[in-house]
């Protein structure tokens, strides 16, 4: 079984060699004359103003937490979906209960406004 992953290993090695080759080639051929203006951060032509690492909207973090919950749910569904024929009616009821529990959480997040961006 594990021998099937030898191809992945080969691909990984090749995927690392490829960018290394291209960057080296570019390093050899491309010119390099850095200057203060050229190496300054791009801000639409004006001088960079203040710190670049500005605070971001809280919503991004809420979305990240929701993602963890729902992606794990999806991963639980995958093995269930594959062995669905073997599990029969028991599997169906089991998974409907699981989905309903998650839906309660989903509706809670929705009502709390975690999914709204304009408030």
């Amino acid at each position: 079984m594990l021998t099937n992953y030898v191809g992945v290993l080969f691909l990984f090695i090749f995927a690392l060699i490829l960018p290394a080759l291209m960057i080296t080639l570019s390093k050899i051929i491309a010119p390099s004359n850095p200057s203060a203006e050229k190496s300054s951060t791009y801000e639409c032509g004006i001088e960079p103003l203040g710190d670049a690492n500005t605070p971001q909207s809280m919503h991004f973090y809420v979305i990240a937490i929701l993602f963890v919950i729902f992606d794990v749910e999806t991963l639980f569904l995958f093995p269930w979906a594959i062995s669905y024929d073997l599990l029969g009616i028991f599997g169906l009821i089991e998974m409907i209960i699981f989905i309903v529990i998650l839906l309660v959480g989903f509706i809670y997040a929705w009502k709390k406004g975690a999914l709204d961006w304009v408030s």
């Binding site: 951060t41 670049a52 999806t74």
Partner: peptide
């Protein structure tokens, strides 16, 4: 270390994780 980059990255990450859930579920 640029404002535009950080904003784009945050948006991209939030967008990709949101649609990843739908993508996975659609294949079930």
């Amino acid at each position: 270390n640029s404002k535009y980059s950080l904003m784009g990255a945050m948006r991209s990450a939030a967008q990709m994780v949101s649609y990843e859930v739908a993508l996975g579920l659609s294949l079930v």
